[in-house]
Structures are given as structure tokens and as C-alpha cells.
Simulated assay, not measured.
Amino acid sequence: MKKVLLLLANGFEAVEASVFTDVIGWNRLSGDGSTQLVTVGTRDKLECTFNFTVIPEMTLDEVDVDDFDALAIPGGFEEAGFYQDAYSEEFLDIIRKFDQNKKMIASICVASLPVAKSGVLNGRKATSYNLNEGIRQKQLAPYGVQVVNQPIVIDKNIITSYNPSTAFDVAFKLLEQLTSEENCKYVKKIMGFSKE
């Protein structure tokens, strides 16, 4: 079983988290059955960007990185406190450990900023939120990131994307990396994303 750690900071954007829960969940129930997702939070109760409460299955202090095969990180809003948690040392340390073990890291929108702040994107290509005059993309550069203004950027084991519209594509790319292209196409089909 391939286990995905869905890393949630307070103020995360619910839609960006839900694509991982759905794609990995659909694969577990109707795809090749090889994936499982575990929600992990910076605290035992989290507030989403748009004000509903989520109780993760685990908190960061309970995580053993060796138990997981991939890390998924949704972005969030500064106004909702996302960066307070996402820039915490314990959050950044989890990212570093996944990268040190060459495990997949998939981030959506501004979730690439804590990935960059952790140091693992230094000298690598990545993207972040592309609208609002590219302010968030510009924030990547001081971390040594080669900023690319494309919907999805993959550099070795790290996937970044540039806004919420890319969320399902990131989740499917992660599923493909964890299973196979054929299985991913099948899950897309049964979820209605593909006619093939």
C-alpha cells in the first residue's frame, strides 16, 4: 500500500486538499487499490480558509516519515493564517525529510512557498500562484528557485502548480507517479475526467 501524507496547515484551502482525498480515495476503492491517504495537521483542529473546521487523523508530532511514500500539500490564504503554520519549523522539517528520502512531494498553488522555504527547491524549477501580478511567484526567487510560469512544474520528485485550477491535475500526476500511467487513466475515466 502506498501511503500519502496530506499535510494541512491552519488556513488551508479546502478544495486543494479535497482533490488529493478524492483521487487517492477513488483509486483505493475503484482503481488498483494500492493507495491510502492520511490527513496530518499542525494542530488537532484546523480552520480552513473559508471557515469550516477539520480534525486531522494525526498531528505532525505523531508522524514517522518512513511510514509514507508521498507528501501532498494544499495551499491556503495569508488572511486565514496559512503561513504561520506552513512556515513553522516542524512543517518545513517534514518537507525536508520527504525530499531527503527522495519521496514524491506534490504541492498546489502557494503551498510551493513553504516547500521553497524549507530549502529543497534551491537550484530547482518550480511555480506558485501566478495571478495578482505574480507576487507569489516572485517570492520563490529568494529561495534559489528557477521560477517557471507554467500550470504544473515537475523537478525530480517535486510537483508545484500555479493556482487552484491545477489541483486535480496535480493529484492525478501524483497518482500516476505512485501507481502507473494506465491506472491513472482508468481512475480519470471512472471519475469522469476522460472519455478514453
Results as ranks from 00 to 15, higher is better:
L5G: 04
L5R: 03
L6Y: 10
L7H: 03
N10S: 01
N10Q: 05
N10I: 00
G11R: 09
F12I: 00
A14V: 09
V15K: 09
A17R: 12
V19D: 05
V19L: 14
D22T: 12
R28G: 07
L29E: 15
L29H: 13
G31N: 10
G33S: 08
S34V: 13
S34K: 15
T35C: 15
Q36D: 06
L37V: 14
L37C: 01
V38Y: 02
V40H: 00
G41Y: 03
T42G: 06
R43K: 14
R43H: 12
R43N: 11
D44Q: 06
D44F: 02
K45T: 08
C48Q: 05
F50T: 08
N51P: 07
V54N: 01
L60P: 10
V63H: 11
V65A: 07
D67V: 04
F68A: 11
D69C: 06
D69E: 09
A70I: 03
L71P: 07
A72V: 01
E78N: 13
E79R: 12
A80I: 09
A80F: 09
F82W: 14
F82R: 02
Q84P: 03
Q84G: 09
D85M: 00
Y87Q: 00
S88F: 08
S88E: 06
S88Y: 08
S88D: 07
E89V: 07
F91I: 04
L92P: 10
D93N: 15
I94N: 06
R96F: 03
R96H: 04
K97A: 12
F98P: 04
N101Q: 15
N101C: 14
K103A: 03
K103D: 05
M104L: 10
I105Q: 06
I108H: 03
C109V: 01
C109G: 04
C109M: 03
A111T: 00
S112W: 11
L113M: 08
P114N: 02
V115N: 05
A116P: 10
A116T: 02
S118W: 10
L121W: 06
G123L: 01
R124P: 11
K125E: 13
S128K: 02
Y129L: 05
Y129Q: 01
N130K: 07
N130R: 11
L131G: 01
E133N: 14
G134C: 10
G134W: 07
I135K: 13
Q137G: 05
L140T: 13
A141L: 02
P142G: 04
Y143H: 10
G144R: 13
Q146G: 09
Q146V: 12
V148S: 13
I152M: 08
V153N: 06
I154Y: 04
N157D: 10
T160C: 07
Y162C: 15
N163S: 10
P164L: 03
T166C: 14
T166Q: 12
A167Q: 11
F168N: 00
F168C: 00
V170T: 12
V170S: 01
V170H: 04
V170D: 01
A171P: 02
F172L: 03
F172T: 02
L175G: 01
E176D: 10
T179D: 11
S180G: 04
E181Q: 14
N183L: 01
C184D: 04
K185F: 05
Y186D: 08
V187D: 05
K189N: 05
I190A: 06
I190Y: 09
I190V: 15
G192M: 07
G192S: 09
S194T: 12
S194E: 15
S194M: 10
K195R: 13
K195V: 12
K195P: 05
E196H: 10
E196G: 14
